[in-house]
Structures are given as structure tokens and as C-alpha cells.
Simulated assay, not measured.
Amino acid sequence: MAKVEVKMPEEFLLKLSRLGERTDEIIPKVLEAGGEVVLSKVKSNLQSVIGSGTKYPSRATGELVNALGLSPAKQDRDGNHNIKIGFTEPRKDGESNAKIANIIEYGKSGQPPRPFLKPAKSATRKSCIEAMKSRLEQELGRI
């Protein structure tokens, strides 16, 4: 039976061990870099659809756009790290921001849908991945 022994460069092994110690610090930074790219696109899409194509003058206050934000990166019970883009609650008038966003995205009886989330997701996929790659390389360069 054949036997193979592969020796890795010592510097590479040291970087891997330091990376293992710092993954909990690096992963949230990488996810936040990607989340910022998507968040900016969602905000611009939301601003462009609010008040457009309505029969009556817009009553937009800007509260929905201001409530849009990025959650901190968290680890779920399966060990996956997640970051979410969503709305803070509640509004001043007592309504739910998530409900209003859902109505804008999917429409309702008498109100056509004006999607802003789904187009942002598909439009920013590549740029989000690139932003996360560059941030990861930047963090790995510091090790």
C-alpha cells in the first residue's frame, strides 16, 4: 500500500491556526460588508416605488425608509451565520412596517404590487459576493 505525506508551509499553517481563533470575529464583518451592499439597493428601490403610480397624492412620510436597517450577524442553532435586512417596529401611527412593506411588495385588492425586495436581491447578488470576498481577503491580510 502506498503512503503519501504532504507538508504544508509553516507560514500557511500558522495563518490557518490564527484564522481558526478569529473566525467568530471575521465572519460578522464579512457578512456586514455584503449586507451593506444589499441594504443600499433595497433602500433605493423602496424610495423609487413609494408614492409612484398612485391615483392620489402620496402621503409618504419617509418613516418606512428610515426604519429599514441591517441586523447584527448572529449564529443560528445549526451553526450558520446570518444577517437580516428588515424594518424596525412599531411606527408612530401604530401600524406595522413589515405589513406596509408587504403590501407595497405584493400589492392588495385595488393596489398593484410594486416589488422592491426581490429585484434588489437579484440585482445585488454578484456585487454582494464580491464585497464579501474583498472584505474576507482584507481580514485575512491582517492575520
Rank of each mutant, 00 (worst) to 15 (best):
Met1Val: 09
Met1Gln: 11
Met1Pro: 10
Lys3Pro: 01
Lys3Arg: 13
Lys3Ala: 10
Val4Lys: 09
Glu5Leu: 10
Glu5Pro: 02
Lys7Tyr: 11
Lys7Pro: 04
Pro9Phe: 09
Phe12Lys: 03
Phe12Met: 11
Ser17Tyr: 12
Ser17Trp: 11
Ser17Met: 14
Ser17His: 10
Gly20Lys: 03
Glu21Phe: 10
Arg22Pro: 02
Thr23Asp: 01
Asp24Gln: 14
Glu25His: 01
Glu25Ser: 11
Ile26Gly: 05
Ile27Leu: 15
Ile27Cys: 07
Ile27Glu: 06
Pro28Ile: 05
Pro28Gly: 13
Lys29Trp: 00
Lys29Cys: 05
Leu31Val: 07
Leu31Ile: 02
Leu31Ser: 03
Glu32Ser: 01
Glu32Gly: 02
Gly34Val: 00
Gly35Met: 04
Glu36Cys: 00
Val37Phe: 04
Leu39Glu: 01
Ser40Asp: 08
Ser40Tyr: 04
Val42Asp: 07
Val42Asn: 02
Ser44Ala: 14
Leu46Lys: 00
Thr54Lys: 14
Thr54Glu: 14
Lys55Glu: 06
Lys55Asp: 02
Tyr56Glu: 14
Pro57Ala: 12
Ser58Ile: 08
Ser58Gln: 11
Arg59Asp: 08
Arg59Phe: 02
Thr61Cys: 08
Val65Gln: 09
Asn66Trp: 00
Ala67Asp: 00
Ala67Gly: 15
Leu68Lys: 06
Leu68Glu: 07
Leu68Thr: 05
Gly69Cys: 07
Gly69Thr: 03
Leu70Tyr: 07
Pro72His: 12
Pro72Gly: 13
Ala73Gln: 04
Ala73Asn: 02
Lys74Gly: 04
Lys74Trp: 04
Gln75Ser: 08
Asp76Lys: 05
Arg77Ile: 09
Asn80Lys: 13
His81Pro: 06
His81Ser: 13
His81Met: 14
Asn82Trp: 12
Asn82His: 15
Lys84Cys: 09
Thr88Arg: 13
Glu89Asn: 06
Glu89Met: 08
Gly94Pro: 08
Gly94Cys: 01
Glu95Asp: 09
Glu95Met: 09
Ser96His: 05
Ser96Ala: 09
Asn97His: 15
Ile100Leu: 13
Ala101Gly: 15
Asn102Ala: 13
Ile103Arg: 09
Ile103Met: 09
Glu105Met: 05
Tyr106Thr: 11
Gly107Met: 03
Ser109Glu: 15
Ser109Val: 14
Gly110Phe: 04
Pro112Asn: 07
Pro113Lys: 14
Phe116His: 03
Lys118Trp: 09
Pro119Glu: 07
Pro119Gln: 09
Ala120Asp: 03
Lys121Tyr: 00
Ser122Phe: 12
Ala123Thr: 08
Thr124Cys: 03
Thr124Trp: 02
Thr124Asn: 01
Arg125Lys: 15
Arg125Asn: 12
Lys126Asp: 09
Ser127Ile: 10
Cys128Met: 15
Cys128Pro: 00
Ile129Ala: 14
Lys133Glu: 09
Ser134Thr: 13
Leu136Tyr: 06
Leu136Pro: 06
Glu137Cys: 05
Glu139Gly: 01
Gly141Cys: 11
Arg142Trp: 01
